[in-house]
Amino acid sequence: MPFLATNSFRTPTKTLNKSLEHNFVELLEEHQNIVHKVCRLYTNDQASHKDLFQEITIQLWKAYPKFRGDSKFSTWMYRVALNTAITLYRKSTRKIKTQEFDTVQFKIKTEEYDQTEEVQLKLMYQAIHELNDIEKALVLLYLEDKNYSEISDTLGISEVNARVKMNRVKKKLKTILNP
């Protein structure tokens, strides 16, 4: 009987989807800081941060069935999140001074640093926001202690080129502080 046949097929699929959704949401909830970090570098205000966070979540969910577990979930997340930020996301036109955002949303813990360090950090974050999308990706992967093989794999450039470009970006940031 076709009716029964369809029904008996539908239920397990639904349950499977439910558990897939549940697994995914749990994993993302646990690793959400990765998404926040990408948003922090690529957006300038809270509304855009939220917007990009949502788009990355959607892209992660869409790609999740392809996640085979042969790489770490977090590694896989960096890739999809960066791809969304660099390629897929349609940037909103809102623009707020980058300096304001970093100090408002991510309060720099003043007690840990002296005055000069605080100023340096402010300048650094400001400088990072002025970098282009690819350079930002390199900075993020550097800050996250990713090795060159992972960086080359994420961006699709050779390891040597990743190294060369990374050195250039580091130099660029340093010159901003010590002109």
Binding site: E21, F24, V25, E26, L28, E29, Q32, N33, H36, K37, R40, F53, Q54, E55, T57, I58, Q59, W61, K62, T84, L88, Y89, R90, Q105, F106
Partner: peptide
């Protein structure tokens, strides 16, 4: 970072992409 809850993430995956 502002913590996004389980339910918020859940509702996000039901939304449409604007990529």
């Amino acid at each position: 970072y502002p913590k996004v809850s389980y339910d918020e993430i859940y509702s996000m995956i039901l939304k449409r992409s604007s990529s």
